[in-house]
Design a protein around this nucleic acid. Structure first.
Lengths: 156, 156
DNA sequence: ATTGAAAGTGATATACT
DNA sequence: AGTATATCACTTTCAAT
């Protein structure tokens, strides 16, 4: 099975389109067209090409967790016991909406997760009650983010 | 200074709007209107309310790093020497587009970053040449993500 | 690849309930 | 908060280059 993605030729106009749309996904195509100086139909076709190549994999409105009261972000290394079924652990983690990312990683941890909590008390509850009680989880190690200085996508 | 965000009342219709738009930021308002059974103007007004409350903080097209050849994601803990100017280190890190996130963290590390690389060789170069040579950086500890199983936003 | 035009659809403001 | 309506803007397709 060939899982290697198609390489795709991206020129300066594609880059402009991508940079505008990664900043604001609802920017009208015609506005981009006026800015780069080619027709709306051309931008439209380029967008289709970029979507077909999978370089653009969709668009999302961004929710600000702070407004929902989530003020604490943490990274948690998870140790599993040897007999643990990793897929089941991930499935269990997925049930907690606070878990935003979950990675299989090299190194000491089996899993590495990024999560949000309301406050430190909520974080403690998530770790000690929710996550620790998942079958197969031995222990966790946490790193609390006091402030996030960089948050972005890869540049094109 | 009051930095606490305004609390905002969110009902079922708002949730539907948010869930649709966090999946696809370009979903037409009128399509959402047809689905929830109220007028487009009403959805439009609710959207304005959600944006004004900062619960919605924008929208982004999502770039698939794999298509650009970035196959490795890593988390890196950074130790700084006591005299280091943290802001300058962050500024230096920002110059490397591969650095997607940078956090001040509790615990042993001073900074914790998430980054993308083309392959392991590129990662080594980023760590040993680029990041290690930033003034104030003592050493780094890395965790490589072999596979990301969960990647999502907080649910409303 | 890009264009211009045409047809369909969506966004937005306003006045009213 | 919601609707109805009107106007303007945007999207999408297509034949032509």
């Amino acid at each position: 099975m060939n899982t290697k993605p198609k390489t795709i030729a991206i020129d300066g106009i594609d880059k402009k389109i991508l940079r505008v749309l990664t900043e604001d996904a609802r920017t009208p195509i015609l506005e981009i067209a006026r800015n780069v100086g080619i027709s709306g139909a051309a931008i439209h076709q380029r967008l289709k090409k970029l979507e077909k190549s999978k370089l653009l994999s969709g668009s999302k409105f961004v929710i600000n967790p702070k407004v929902l009261g989530y003020s604490t972000m943490a990274f948690v290394g998870v140790y599993l016991d040897k007999a643990a079924n990793t897929d089941d652990v991930v499935k269990a983690l997925r049930r907690f909406p606070e878990v935003l990312e979950c990675h299989f990683t090299t190194g000491n941890y089996n899993l590495f997760i990024k999560l949000l909590s309301i406050d430190n008390e909520h974080l403690m509850h998530l770790l000690n009650k929710n996550i620790q009680s998942i079958e197969g989880v031995l222990r966790t190690e946490s790193l609390i983010s006091l402030d996030q200085q960089i948050d972005r996508q890869i540049l094109v």
